Simulated scan of single mutants.
Amino acid sequence: MNCSVAQALEVLGDWWTLLIVRDAFMGMRRFSDFQESLGISKNVLAQRLSHLVERGVFELVDVGEHGTHYEYALTPMGRDLAVVLTALRQWADRWVLGPGNEPLVVHDRRTGRPIPPLRICGEDGQPLRGRDMELRPGPGITAETLARYRDYLSPSAK
C-alpha cells in the first residue's frame, strides 16, 4: 500500500514485534532474555527477530569469545523508534491506564526529571494541534493513493 503508516506497520505491525523492540531499548540483547521477558514461544520469537534483522531494525552482533555467539542490537533505524515507543507509552499512560497508574516513567538522564509529553511543533517551535496540520501529496504518491485521499487533502493540494 502506498502509505507510510502501512509500510511502517509492515515492519512493526504486531504485538510481539514492538514488545521485542521495547525490551531492546531496556537493554536486552540475547534471545533467551527476550524469551524469558515476554513469555513468547521460541519459534515466534525466532521469526520476529529474523524479520527485524531482515528489515534493518536489528543487527546480529558476534559477541562470542570462544566460538560464535550472536546477540541482537538495535541499528540506527531501530534506535529511531525511541520516539514511536515513547509516544505510544505516553498515549497509553494518559488514555488507557490513566494518570497516576504509569508502570514506567521515562526520565532524562541529564536532569533526572521525567521527560515532557511529546508534541508536534511547527518551525517556530510552537505546538501544533490537529487542525493546524494538513496533508498534501508527497513525491512518492501514486494515482491510486491520490484518488483514495483526494477528499481529505488540503484544497490547495488538489
Rank of each mutant, 00 (worst) to 15 (best):
E36I: 02
E36F: 10
E36V: 06
S37E: 02
S37Y: 04
S37H: 14
G39T: 06
G39K: 03
G39H: 09
I40Y: 10
I40K: 03
I40A: 10
I40D: 02
S41I: 09
S41R: 07
S41F: 13
S41A: 11
S41H: 13
S41D: 15
K42D: 13
K42M: 02
K42L: 04
N43K: 11
N43D: 14
N43V: 15
V44I: 12
V44E: 07
V44H: 13
V44L: 12
V44D: 05
V44T: 15
V44M: 10
L45M: 06
L45F: 07
L45I: 04
L45G: 02
A46G: 12
A46I: 02
A46M: 07
A46C: 07
Q47V: 08
Q47W: 07
Q47G: 06
R48C: 08
R48T: 04
R48G: 03
L49E: 00
S50K: 14
S50E: 14
S50M: 09
S50P: 00
S50T: 15
H51V: 05
H51P: 00
H51Q: 08
H51W: 07
H51M: 05
H51K: 11
L52M: 08
L52S: 00
L52D: 01
V53H: 04
V53Y: 04
V53W: 02
V53L: 03
V53A: 08
E54P: 00
E54I: 04
E54A: 12
R55L: 06
R55K: 15
G56P: 06
V57P: 00
V57E: 01
F58G: 00
F58S: 05
F58R: 00
F58P: 00
E59P: 03
E59N: 04
E59F: 02
L60E: 09
L60P: 00
L60M: 12
L60Q: 11
V61Q: 11
V61K: 10
D62V: 03
D62I: 09
D62E: 07
D62S: 09
D62A: 05
V63Q: 10
V63F: 08
V63N: 06
G64N: 13
G64F: 14
E65V: 14
H66K: 15
H66E: 15
G67D: 12
G67K: 08
T68S: 14
T68A: 14
T68I: 15
T68F: 10
T68G: 07
H69M: 14
H69F: 15
H69L: 14
H69N: 12
H69C: 11
H69P: 03
Y70H: 11
Y70R: 05
E71Y: 03
Y72F: 14
Y72V: 00
Y72M: 02
Y72N: 01
Y72Q: 01
Y72D: 00
A73H: 09
A73Y: 04
A73R: 08
A73I: 02
A73N: 07
A73W: 05
L74V: 11
L74M: 11
L74F: 05
L74D: 10
L74G: 12
L74S: 09
L74C: 10
T75Q: 06
P76A: 04
P76M: 05
P76Q: 08
M77G: 02
M77K: 14
M77P: 01
M77R: 10
G78T: 03
G78R: 02
R79W: 05
R79V: 01
R79F: 05
R79C: 03
R79T: 04
D80K: 03
D80G: 10
D80C: 03
A82D: 15
A82T: 08
